[in-house]
Each structure stands twice: as structure tokens, then as C-alpha cells.
Design a binder for these strands. Sequence first.
DNA 1: TAGATTGTTAATCGATTAACAATC
DNA 2: TAGATTGTTAATCGATTAACAATC
Lengths: 205, 205
Amino acid sequence: MTTKKIPDIIIGRLPLYLRALERMANSGEIVTSSKELGEWVGISAAQIRKDISQFGEFGKQGTGYNIKFLSEKLREILNIDRVWDVAIIGAGDIGHGLARYQGFLERGFRVTLAFDNDPAKIGSKIGDIQVQDIDKMVDAINKSDVKVAMIAVPAEYAQDVADELAKTQVKAILNYAPICITVPEGVRVQYIDPATHLQWMTYYL
Amino acid sequence: MTTKKIPDIIIGRLPLYLRALERMANSGEIVTSSKELGEWVGISAAQIRKDISQFGEFGKQGTGYNIKFLSEKLREILNIDRVWDVAIIGAGDIGHGLARYQGFLERGFRVTLAFDNDPAKIGSKIGDIQVQDIDKMVDAINKSDVKVAMIAVPAEYAQDVADELAKTQVKAILNYAPICITVPEGVRVQYIDPATHLQWMTYYL
DNA sequence: TAGATTGTTAATCGATTAACAATC
DNA sequence: TAGATTGTTAATCGATTAACAATC
């Protein structure tokens, strides 16, 4: 079997499909079509069929896709048919919000570690996790099975944190600091910066 | 003069260029090149030159780009050579974090209105803005000159909020609810959903 | 069977890269 | 002048769309 490389842009759409399918399931629907799913996520039916067909034949001609079945398949493909432990670095407003965010668990993630360099925050609790000294981060992560981290520190510290994370088994980083970071080969980074998103839209105002 | 339509994907990169240029300026640099800027943002030099040249000739052969000058031009292009008032709908953890976020002001945005439907929150203060009853949102926004809004309510209310916003002059929405919303022609939406970003990366783990 | 919708191929469209003349 | 780097064109690459046979 020749494993063909799936384009990254397709992978990025799968979570959107899954999110819509889960909402459909919640409202009691059993099957859907590429057309309906496309309307939910704002993507053409042809593209949805093409994307999904990269991974197998999950639909039935004339009928469409079974929502539960397709959701299950997408979860397997995305490796979220399990729960990933996540570390948060930075216990300011953003870190706090992320640590308390209820939406993660049902979507495959559980925050288990939090770090900060502020003595006033170290030792405090967010929900039921305790903020640890950032100096102990590498050790603590290496003792855990955390492979996913979220950086929520000021821009000037983000690269330092990324460099420390490089000493651990973390392979996926969600970076809230408004700066592009450099990471070793094999580590993935995604960026969230609300100001950047807003600036994109003001062009059209 | 024929105004050619600039692809949306190019507009989306300009805020990244601007962000990098501002950091360069802060560290005292005066000029940069497409090569250097490309390294900062992880984009090829050729693409950066092509993107920037859509809007004018802002560089000098042999020298590169003056950082201050190019920043100024990008701000003009993106319409952030002014400050935009922003409304936040939803005063939970995310809304709170956004309202308190210090990073907006220097990048062209100021949160001036906040709304919630929870009687326990209405009337409370976040920084120096007071949370108002969401029933008064349309009136309050219409009396203001807010054209940008951030939705930070649970997924099940997001479409309702979007429908209400459609009765105002809001033309740009940053949606934190994990759901795709439908808006009238001419209104832009951007999405931020950390779980979706994380799920994108777990594929590769 | 007739209607619907998938999976897939070929055609189109758009974005990125490479190359280089222009010029600072 | 020699070296560097832009702005731009042409070539390449990749993604999206349209169309349709297969089939439920």
C-alpha cells in the first residue's frame, strides 16, 4: 500500500467537519449529506466529499453519511479517540481562561499542568490544578505524558518557553503570544492572536 | 486606474508582517529586507515582496524596506491608522479575558462595550467598562460607533447574537463560539476555537 | 425502478516559487 | 563601480470545482 501524503489544509478542515457533525448528532440527526454538511461549515459539497474520501469510503451513494459513524472515523483519523493531557505555560488572564475552559474535555483535551514565573501565582490553584514554578517545567512535563502545550506568556518570553519545551516530549504547541516562534523539526505550532484576526477584517471596513 | 481585487489570503498575511516589523522597530532596527522579514514570519522572501508590491513600491532596490515607513503603510492599508471601538458579547471567562487584554490598544482596538444575559453579571465592571443587559445591545451599539464585535457566548446562543448584530452597523465579528455562524452579505467573520487548532495538530502526533 | 448522493477524474482556477532586469 | 535587493514576469505547483459513472 502506498500511503499518500494528505495535504495539511485538508487535515485542518476535519475538525470543522467533526464539530458540525457533533452538533448535528446533538440535535438528533442520524444521517447527513456532503451538501448539508457543506452548508453547516461554509464549504462546497464537492470539497467535503473529496476531503473525506482521502481516508476511506465512509458514505453511501444515494444516502449520504451516517453522522455517528463519520464522527467516529474523524476522531480516529485526528487521534482524538482518546484524551490528551495538556500543559499551560503562563497563568495570566489567558492561561487562566484556558485552564478553566470547559470545552476542552469533550473534544479530547485535559489541562493537567500549569506554570508561571510569578511568585505570587506559583502555588495558587486554578480549578484543581496547581500552578508550578516555571523552572520546574521541563522536569514536570517529562515526568508526565503531556505532548501538547499552550503558551500564554508575554511575547518576549515565548521563544524562551518554546526552547525549554524543546527539551521535553511536547510535539504540539498552541501559541497565544503574538510572535512567531522557532521550534525543532517535528514540532507543530498553531497560532492564536485576536488582534491579528481583527486587523484582517478592518481592511474591509 | 483599474483597482485590482487583492486576494483575501494576502490581506491575512499583512498583520503578520506588521507584527514582525513592530518588534523589529522595538529592537532598534531601521531597515529590513524581504529575506529577513521572511525569516521572522516563516514565509518566503519572494512571497513577501509579491504581497507588499500589490499596494505600492515601498522598498528600495539594494537596500530593502524602511521599517517605520512600511509599518505606517501597512497600518494605512489595514485601516488601523486609527482606533476601532469594539463590543464584547458574553462576559464569561473568555469575554473577561478579552476585555482586560492589554494588547489590543496598541494594535488599533479598544473595548468600549460589554454585554451579557446573566443578571449576576449585568452591572458589574470589567476594568472601567460596565457589563450591560444583552437586551439593550442593539440600541447601545447603534448609539455608539462600534463596527467590530467579539462573540464570546456559548455555541447555542452564537447565531442569535449574530442575528441581533445584523441589526447594527457591526461589519466585523470575531467569533469565539465553536460554531459556524451565518451573517448578512458584507459582514466578515473570523473564528477562534482553540480545540479546533489542537485537533489539527493531534493528527500528526 | 427512479431519485439521490457518493467517490473520483479531468478541467479550472489560484497561489507560490524561481528567475532576472532594474536600480539603489 | 560592484553588491544587494526590489518589483515583476513566467513557470510551477497545488487546491478547488464541475461533471458523471457507480450504486445505494
